[in-house]
C-alpha cells in the first residue's frame, strides 16, 4: 500500500479520484490547492502526488516546482492532470501527465508503474 496525495480544487473530482485510488489499495490524502498540499507534505511523506494544474492560491506547476526543487521532497513522484493542454516544456518535468477525462485503465496502469 502506498500513500497518495491528491490535489484538486474541484471537490467532487477530488472525491472521485480518491475512490479510484483507494480501490487500488492505497492510502489517500486530500488537498484543494498547492498550498494545502505543501502543508500536508510537511506532515506526511507521500509516495505519489496527483495534482490538477489549474487551481487557486497555488497551481499545479508551482506545486511541482516546490516539490522537485526541495531536496527532502524531490524523490516524490508527481503526476500532472488537466482538462486543458498541459505545458509539457515546463521544468522541472513531472513523472507523468494525465489528461481529463480519465481513462480508468490508464490510471490503474500509472499507479502500478509509479508506486
Amino acid at each position: 500500500m502506498a500513500k497518495v496525495l491528491i490535489v484538486d480544487d474541484e471537490q467532487s473530482l477530488l472525491f472521485l479520484l480518491q475512490q479510484i485510488v483507494e480501490e487500488q489499495g492505497h492510502y489517500v490524502l486530500l488537498a484543494e490547492n498547492g498550498e494545502q498540499a505543501l502543508h500536508a507534505l510537511e506532515k506526511e511523506n507521500p509516495d505519489l502526488i496527483i495534482t490538477d494544474v489549474m487551481m487557486p492560491i497555488m497551481d499545479g506547476y508551482q506545486l511541482l516546482m516546490e516539490v522537485k526543487t526541495r531536496p527532502e521532497l524531490c524523490d516524490t513522484k508527481v503526476v500532472l492532470i488537466s482538462a486543458a493542454p498541459i505545458n509539457r516544456r515546463f521544468e522541472p518535468k513531472p513523472d507523468a501527465y494525465l489528461t481529463k477525462p480519465y481513462d480508468l485503465v490508464t490510471i490503474e496502469d500509472l499507479l502500478l508503474q509509479l508506486i
Binding site: 467532487s12 473530482l13 477525462p101
Partner: peptide, 13 residues
C-alpha cells in the same frame, strides 16, 4: 447535477 456532471465528465461519460 453539478457534482454528477463533473464526475461523469471526468470519466468521459
Amino acid at each position: 447535477l453539478y457534482r454528477l456532471s463533473a464526475q461523469l465528465n471526468l470519466l468521459g461519460v
